[in-house]
């Protein structure tokens, strides 16, 4: 009941914001090529659905592949770094450099270097999705409870047992928090890379549709594409939050509810 009321409140707030937006656009006679209202955006979304849904599929493909690669390589690297302080000190600066290099600046070069366009897009998206996973997972792997560490030593646990039964579960909440950040970042990276590549035709993602709509002054379509990206970002976030809840709800403080 409480939860239902909360959701209804959030929905009402969203409707109010959209209503204000539509009302403002109408009241001030803002032309749609300057700022379209939600209804104009919805109309564009419906009318251009075949074009936009195709673009969304292309962008999602890059996003999903980038995120998957970021998870696999990120966890692998975190495990390696957590094994030795020396390795961490050596490798971590490169991670930071990768993270702070503006993707927009190097994307044209990456697209140039990679002869395959898909691979170029993927690399760009991966570059910015990678860091939160590595950094969080590394932190998690190092954050096992000292008392439990001592307990494992007392029982003469093997290195593998210590990793499997203590550090890995301990790192899971950290990893999942990183995953949620990376999920959105992979989408941002995919869109940014497509912007730079700017390729049209069959293989064009949502970003090209935004560029194209801008050049042809079809601003409602541009906003429709942006709305799709926003909704996708929300969906990724909600999906990953749900996943995190499922994995942690039995035992982790962040997910265990009530009863206290």
């Amino acid at each position: 009941m409480n939860q239902a009321a909360r959701r209804a409140g959030a929905a009402a707030a969203a409707v109010a914001v959209l209503g204000l937006w539509e009302g403002g656009v109408r009241y001030y006679h803002v032309p749609p090529f300057v700022m379209p209202g939600p209804l104009a955006i919805l109309r564009a979304l419906v009318a251009d659905w075949p074009l936009l849904s195709h673009g969304l599929a292309v962008t999602l493909q890059v996003t999903a592949l980038a995120l998957a690669t970021a998870v696999v390589l990120g966890v692998l690297l975190a495990v390696i770094m957590s094994q030795s302080e020396w390795l961490e000190t050596t490798l971590f600066p490169y991670m930071v450099v990768m993270q702070v290099t503006p993707i927009i600046a190097i994307a044209p070069l990456i697209i140039l270097w990679m002869n395959n366009l898909k691979a170029g897009l993927l690399l760009c998206a991966w570059l910015i999705a990678f860091f939160p996973i590595v950094s969080n997972t590394t932190q998690g792997l190092k954050s096992a409870d000292r008392g439990l560490e001592d307990l494992f030593t007392l029982y003469r646990a093997s290195r593998w047992q210590r990793f499997r039964y203590l550090r890995m579960p301990g790192a899971l909440p950290y990893f999942l928090a990183g995953l949620r950040i990376s999920g959105s970042l992979a989408l941002v990276g995919a869109v940014a890379a497509e912007f730079v590549a700017g390729t049209g035709g069959q293989g064009s993602g949502l970003a090209f549709r935004i560029l194209e709509a801008g050049y042809t002054m079809n601003i409602p379509r541009m906003f429709a594409a942006l709305a799709l990206i926003s909704v996708t970002g929300l969906a990724i976030h909600v999906g990953l939050t749900y996943l995190s809840h499922r994995l942690l709800r039995r035992w982790h403080e962040s997910a265990v509810r009530g009863d206290r």
Binding site: I111, L112, G201, Q202
Partner: peptide, 15 residues
Amino acid sequence: FTDDQIRPYTFNEAP
């Protein structure tokens, strides 16, 4: 001409 001919041009002459 067909869409599969399109390659990205980023205003760099190297390619």
